Computed example of a mutant assay.
Amino acid sequence: MNDRKQTAKLNHVSIPATDLEESEAFYREVLGCTRVQAPNFGFPVCWMRLGDLQLHLQQVGPSADVLTYQHFAVSVSDFVSAYRVLHARGAFEEGTRYADLWILPSGELQMFARDPSGNLFEIDHPNMAELDMSAFETPPRRLEAEVTQTAEDRRATLFLQRSKAA
């Protein structure tokens, strides 16, 4: 990492839900969350506004290992430096969808890693066009190339207030 101190802001928390509709109703009633558009990931998800942040629910089977899916996400001041540190530490998970960097239909970038205790976390960047894509050892995968997106899906954003993203 360079001499500049890395800064991070919480973006969202993602938790598994065995009954997506029931969980959505629960968080709507208890916390006042409202549903926001999500892209099509090829499996059921529900993104909800929770103040200035998001709560993401993802449908899982009743016997799913919740630690496989549960994660928090941050945006950072230097996405490429974070990638380099994670790569050097071997923090990227091999052989799962979380092993790859993803470009969402909005042009936002996601990368997933595991901390030393095995917890999954995500780092997001609001605009892939701002980054030198040759910095990544393996090119990011485009969600839209793998799962059909509607016009509405393409409007989904990880950054509720894009102008305030790190």
Rank of each mutant, 00 (worst) to 15 (best):
F92P: 05
G61S: 14
T96E: 08
A8D: 03
K5F: 10
A17G: 10
V36M: 05
R35P: 03
A165R: 05
G95K: 07
K164V: 04
C33V: 14
R28G: 13
G42F: 12
R35A: 11
L143S: 09
E93C: 07
A145L: 14
G95Q: 08
R155Y: 00
E137K: 09
D153M: 02
Q6V: 12
D153E: 02
R162C: 00
Y98K: 08
A99E: 14
N119A: 12
S134T: 15
G61D: 14
E130A: 11
P126I: 03
L57F: 06
F136S: 03
A38V: 00
D78E: 11
N40C: 05
T68L: 11
T148C: 08
Q110P: 00
S63A: 15
V80A: 08
D100N: 12
Y98Q: 10
R4S: 13
T157E: 00
L104C: 00
Q54K: 14
A88G: 13
K5I: 13
A25L: 13
M48K: 07
A113L: 08
Q37L: 06
L86R: 03
A113K: 04
S117H: 11
V85G: 02
E21K: 14
D78S: 09
G61T: 13
G118N: 10
R4A: 14
V60R: 06
T157M: 00
I103K: 06
F136V: 03
L143A: 09
P16I: 11
V30N: 13
E108G: 01
E144N: 08
H87W: 06
E22S: 15
V147R: 11
V80L: 00
L86P: 01
R142L: 12
T138A: 12
Q161R: 06
S77V: 06
G90D: 07
D52T: 13
Q6T: 13
A38Y: 00
Y83V: 02
E108F: 01
P116Y: 11
W102I: 02
Q58G: 06
Y27E: 13
E108T: 01
D124L: 10
K164G: 00
L10G: 10
T68R: 14
T96R: 09
F41Y: 15
Q59W: 06
A113T: 07
N40I: 03
E22M: 14
L143E: 08
K5D: 09
A99T: 05
S63T: 15
E137L: 11
F92V: 07
A135E: 08
Y83D: 04
L120H: 06
A64H: 09
L57I: 07
T34K: 13
N119E: 04
E93S: 08
R4C: 05
A145W: 12
E94M: 05
E122M: 04
H12V: 05
E94D: 11
R162Y: 00
M133H: 01
A73M: 04
P44L: 06
T157P: 00
P39K: 01
